[in-house]
């Protein structure tokens, strides 16, 4: 099985090694690195549960290849908190009950992190538009929208 050398930084930790050329980014992150917070479900880029940030840009890890992470900086859900301190978004997801089963939560958090990075004051329409590629089957979405709004408001207050 062909292997490819990659050098990548995941949640601030450098990784150098070889990956199978057919590995997806999700397989590399989950199976090789043991970071199981990134989930897969549809495996065709429509559900959003596998969202990761690659050089700050959201990517579906279910279809991106591990080899595409070479010389890139990757952030997964495990990289959002600062040690034991949750990010404003993570705390807002707790406070607004935006996670039920939690299987989609990693993807929503990663996407919303990217949104607030580029647009710290999104309108409700902008939040909806940005998160259109993420599916949640439990919450009915409103708590997720409210959580993103709450995180943005709290960032304002600081």
């Amino acid at each position: 099985m062909a292997r490819v050398e990659i050098n990548t930084v995941v949640n601030g930790y450098a990784y150098s090694g070889s990956v199978q050329s057919r590995w997806t980014a999700a397989e590399f992150i989950r199976d090789e690195l043991g970071l199981t917070g990134t989930k897969t479900s549809c495996e065709m880029e429509v559900c959003g549960v596998c969202s990761i940030l690659v050089d700050g840009v959201p990517v579906s890890a279910c279809t991106a290849l591990a080899s595409d992470l070479d010389n890139k900086s990757v952030v997964t859900v495990e990289g959002l908190a600062d040690g034991d301190e949750l990010s404003a978004l993570q705390q807002a997801f707790l406070d607004r009950f935006a996670a039920q089963c939690g299987f989609c939560t990693s993807g929503f958090l990663v996407m919303a992190t990217a949104l607030l990075e580029s647009n710290p004051h999104p309108t409700s329409e902008e939040i909806t538009h940005y998160l259109e590629g993420n599916i949640c089957r439990c919450t009915g979405y409103r708590p997720i929208i409210e959580a993103v709004q709450l995180a943005a408001e709290r960032a304002d207050g600081e």
Binding site: K39, T76, A81, L86, Q90, F97, G102, T105
Partner: peptide, 21 residues
């Protein structure tokens, strides 16, 4: 009372373990 979910923190940090993990 709307006490926070006891599994909430693990679910927002990616630590929650599902069967698939």
């Amino acid at each position: 009372a709307s006490l926070p979910r006891s599994d909430g923190r693990s679910k927002v940090t990616g630590a929650a373990r599902y069967a698939v993990d």
